[in-house]
Simulated scan of single mutants.
Amino acid sequence: MQQRIFIILILILAISGCSRSDRSATTFADYPPLPDDLTRAQVVRVVDGDTIIVRIDRREERVRLIGINAPESVDPRRTVECFGKEAAANARALLDNKTVLLEDDPSQDSRDRFGRLLRYVWLEDGRMVNLEQIWQGYAYEYTYNVPYRYQAIFRAAEADARAAKRGLWSPETCNGQR
């Protein structure tokens, strides 16, 4: 079954004229296109798998990635959760010292109750960090209150990660449980 899905994905990419290297390391078929006119920011620090600190026009802002939740790795009120350190390390690998593009979502508040900006975080190569974290198995889809723009895509990415037993969903990491 997985082999059939992989072949279908390759055919879709071939028909669309988009090679795997043009998109990203992700073979996820429903990858959204990079929007135009996004806010540029410089990553200052990765806090954990779903929160970063960026510099926008000389001021630092804490950013919470919309639509995902990663296992806790730094909350002083909680123990480090299974795969929390790995989720944070993957976010660092994607984001350390990078310029990113921030996308807001009109269906969501601009900030959460902790004052963090709520954003989709895009790399300049067209990969969305929120989606990468889910698809690679370092986070799971999370809806807070109301549906968001990429909810269906994020849910499909999580289902793909679960089916492939990547990251959180691997029996060797967290016993296949998040």
Rank of each mutant, 00 (worst) to 15 (best):
V80G: 07
R119F: 02
I7A: 11
M128W: 13
R155Y: 05
D104V: 12
I5F: 04
K85E: 13
R113Y: 10
P147K: 00
N175W: 00
S21V: 15
E60N: 12
S19I: 12
F6K: 14
W135R: 07
I5S: 05
T39Y: 00
R77C: 07
Q177K: 11
W135D: 15
P106E: 00
G167Y: 06
E81I: 03
N97P: 12
A91V: 04
V63Y: 01
V47C: 06
L38Y: 02
D109E: 14
L94Y: 14
N130D: 15
D96S: 14
I8N: 06
G67M: 05
L102K: 03
G67R: 00
Y140P: 00
W122H: 07
N69E: 14
I153G: 04
A88Q: 10
D105V: 11
V63A: 03
I52P: 02
G167R: 04
R92S: 13
Q42M: 04
C174H: 04
P33S: 10
G67K: 01
A164F: 04
L11D: 01
G17V: 06
E172A: 11
G84Q: 02
L131I: 10
A156T: 12
A70G: 11
P106W: 00
I56Y: 01
P33G: 04
A87P: 05
I52S: 04
V100R: 01
L101H: 02
G17E: 15
Q108C: 06
R23N: 10
V46M: 06
D30A: 11
V47S: 14
A163Y: 05
F154D: 11
N69L: 10
R166D: 07
Q42K: 03
N97M: 05
M1Q: 10
D125M: 05
G176I: 08
D105Q: 05
F28M: 06
T51C: 11
N175F: 02
G167S: 09
Y148R: 09
D112S: 04
L34H: 06
R166K: 15
G137R: 04
V121A: 05
R116E: 13
N90W: 14
D57E: 09
K85I: 13
R55Y: 00
Y142N: 10
I15Y: 11
L94W: 07
P147G: 01
L123M: 06
D125F: 08
I56W: 00
G84L: 02
V129A: 15
I53W: 07
T79W: 01
R178Q: 08
T143Y: 01
V54S: 05
A164I: 01
R45N: 08
E103I: 08
S16H: 10
R116V: 14
T51P: 15
R178N: 09
D125L: 09
R62V: 07
V80R: 11
P76S: 10
A25L: 07
Y31H: 13
R166G: 09
L118G: 03
G176W: 00
P35Y: 08
A88H: 05
L13C: 11
V146E: 10
D96H: 06
